[in-house]
Simulated assay, not measured.
Amino acid sequence: MAPSQSLSKSPLLAYVGLVLTPLFWAGNAVIARGTVQHIPPLSMSFWRWIIALAILLPIGLPGVIRHRQVIRQHLGSMIALATFSVAAFNSLLYCAAVTTTATNIALINATIPIFVALLAWLMLGDRTRPIQALGILLAVIGILTVIARGQLSVLTGLEAQPGDLIMVAAVFSWGLFSVLLRRQAVPLPALTFLTTQILLGTLIILPFYLTDLLAFSGGFEVSRQTVLPLMYFAIFPGILAYGFWNHGVQTIGPGSAAIFMYLTPVYASVLAGLFLNESLGVFHWVGGALILIGLLLATRVGRPGFRRRQAD
């Protein structure tokens, strides 16, 4: 085996990449929370993908051209997938950052496998074991604990932070993407799929971005304070996290790789404490523990669950 081949299959490199991937996802939530006052959410989402496209097109466009017939045949499915992943998920996440904390975003985001399992049961008829159902229930209770901030009156009085509810909608959107990805699989190489998804998703965001720009937010000032976060969003939680995730899945398998996803709220709580002065309340610990136990029960028992194909 050639040295380069041995290096590419090195478990060490896969583990390093999988440790960095949730760090990049956590950074996405923390930096979004810290800059959303300077960059409107829809501007943040739109320009993140424009920058990612500028980086990806030179290497991804040849594949798009080569597989254009496949893309044309599955265009409806590709548009649906791009809508729920690139367009809706990221836009909703950044909208959530306006009124909720980075820690809450990361905790709710960590429940993606729960929503995928639930939607797969509802839409695809996947069988759910009793212990998996218990895991889903515990995780949902954990989400409600975080949203309610440990106070039942918040739920009964409908006083939840809008951002928490928007983040639930974002996770639900990613769940739909994951289920549709299975039901409407598109036979494309990973790089071609990602490039096409970002291109379509950016076009879907465009009219919403223009409406917000012209009628509401007025855009943002181009400066070091705004350009650097956008570069981070495009490169780290976008392109690099996607590449690291797929390399890790190919090297150590999806089941082992999925465990690293649970590091995201851990990283986010540390980063949010350091850079945003966010503190952890008792409800974070209780809700986080319930979510973690629920995830372990729902995703590590029986048939392997869905895995993330694209970055946050």
Rank of each mutant, 00 (worst) to 15 (best):
S6E: 15
L13R: 11
V16W: 04
L18R: 12
L18E: 12
V19C: 13
L20K: 09
T21N: 08
P22I: 00
P22C: 04
W25N: 03
I31F: 03
R33D: 05
R33P: 02
Q37C: 00
Q37N: 11
P40T: 05
P41N: 08
S43Y: 09
M44P: 07
W47A: 01
A54H: 00
P58N: 07
L61S: 03
G63F: 08
G63P: 07
V64Q: 13
V64C: 15
I65K: 14
H67L: 15
H67E: 15
R68C: 07
Q69N: 12
I71V: 13
L75S: 11
G76H: 15
L81R: 05
A82W: 05
F84Y: 01
F84D: 01
V86H: 12
A88V: 08
A88D: 01
S91F: 13
S91V: 10
S91Q: 10
L92G: 02
L92M: 13
C95A: 15
T99F: 05
N104C: 00
T111A: 02
P113R: 00
P113K: 00
I114L: 14
I114W: 02
L118F: 14
W121G: 11
W121A: 15
I131R: 06
A133P: 06
A133K: 10
G135S: 02
L137Y: 04
V140Y: 08
V140R: 03
I141A: 15
G142I: 06
A148L: 10
Q151N: 15
L152R: 12
L155N: 10
L155E: 10
E159C: 09
E159M: 14
E159P: 02
V168H: 08
A169Q: 14
A169E: 14
V171M: 11
G175K: 03
G175S: 11
S178E: 12
R182H: 13
Q184F: 15
A185G: 13
V186M: 07
P187W: 05
T192I: 00
I198Y: 04
L199W: 05
P207N: 11
F208H: 01
T211R: 05
L214W: 13
S217Y: 01
V227H: 03
L230N: 04
I235M: 08
F236C: 14
Y242S: 06
Y242E: 03
F244C: 06
F244A: 11
W245E: 02
W245P: 00
H247A: 12
Q250C: 00
Q250M: 12
P254K: 04
G255N: 14
A257L: 12
I259R: 03
Y262L: 13
P265A: 09
Y267T: 03
A268C: 09
A268Q: 07
A268R: 06
S269L: 05
F275K: 00
F275Q: 00
L276C: 05
E278A: 10
S279H: 15
L280H: 07
G281C: 13
V282D: 06
H284E: 12
G287T: 09
A298W: 04
T299Y: 03
R303P: 07
P304C: 04
F306Y: 12
R307C: 06
R308F: 11
